[in-house]
């Protein structure tokens, strides 16, 4: 059995994503990164919100939690604080994470809680068939932007860095080997890690904007990105308007669960040595 497929719930395949959708490639990259790191399948918690990307967790053979739209990171925070020893990974989309989920995203980053977040960014709401999202480039078409999107899109990497994430990277479904490498780094960072993975949506983004087939969209993605390391050496006009890919930010900051356990260490007793039942409580402050 191929190592990759051993991470899947094969009875659930083939998956629901459209022919040529980049989400499958990104899911494959995550599985290969997990395989390279030899992580214990029984200790991985995969949490997702709602949308095309969020269906990924159902196909993967871990403890998987498919939550409500935008709320994956909040569910994941509860999971992680309750079980800091588990590896918690959130798989989310551009709409799920940065629109309805935006508040939870910036707070999870601010706390620097040890969660790896993969934002599968196809620049559109795919599941609901083609509306624009906070990551739809200005001017592009969508069913709810028939005259061209009049809103600017987030720079998710800058947003994550500003909010406090300690590992931020951007990859794509075209640059697969690099994406696997970035995911490996993200999974090893003890803190809040964000990997934005540009993904092609031929069915809606591609058709509505006449970009063409899945392969044409991969070329489009390749064309609109430039490797962060190479960018420094390139003339400005080569980098202008391009999205940088690769590792974009890495810093080491105290991780939330560690800090909480440290702060409460002096009173912390294991649950087992409490006889249960009534515990004395000082009169609380008014």
């Amino acid at each position: 059995m191929s190592e990759t497929l051993s991470y899947f719930r094969q009875d659930r395949l083939p998956h629901i994503w459209c022919p040529g959708c980049g989400h499958g490639t990104i899911t494959g990259a995550l599985v290969r990164a997990i395989d390279r790191l030899g992580l214990d399948k029984n200790k991985i918690m995969l949490v997702s919100g709602i949308g095309c990307s969020s269906r990924a967790v159902g196909y993967l053979d871990f403890d998987t939690l498919h939550t409500a739209h935008g709320r994956a990171l909040a569910f994941a925070t509860g999971l992680k604080v309750a079980r800091p020893d588990l590896k918690v990974i959130v798989m989310t989309g551009d709409g799920d994470c940065t629109a309805i989920g935006g508040n939870h995203f910036i707070h999870a980053a601010r706390r620097n809680i040890d969660i790896t977040t993969i934002v599968m960014n196809n620049n559109i709401y795919g599941m609901t068939s083609g509306q624009y999202s906070p990551m739809t480039p200005k001017g592009m078409l969508a069913t709810t932007a028939p005259y061209g999107n009049s809103e600017r899109d987030f720079d998710l990497a800058e947003l994550a860095k500003a909010a406090g994430a300690t590992y931020v990277a951007r990859g794509t479904s075209f640059h697969v080997p690099m994406l696997i490498e970035l995911l490996e780094q993200a999974l090893q960072n003890k803190g809040f890690s964000v990997v934005e993975a540009l993904s092609q949506c031929p069915t809606y983004m591609g058709r509505k904007n006449k970009i063409g087939s899945a392969v044409d969209m991969l070329e489009w993605i390749k064309g609109r990105t430039v490797n962060a390391k190479a960018a420094a050496a390139l003339p400005p006009e080569k980098v202008q308007g391009k999205l940088l890919i690769g590792e974009l930010h890495k810093s080491s900051q105290p991780e939330y669960c560690d800090e909480y356990l440290k702060a409460t260490a002096k009173v912390r007793r294991a649950w087992k040595n409490i006889d249960g039942g009534l515990r004395g409580c000082e009169q609380n402050s008014d």
Binding site: F8, G24, T25, V176
Partner: peptide
């Protein structure tokens, strides 16, 4: 092909 396949259909 194996790395790029979105459907894990080729090895």
């Amino acid at each position: 092909c194996e790395l790029r396949c979105p459907d894990f259909a080729i090895e």
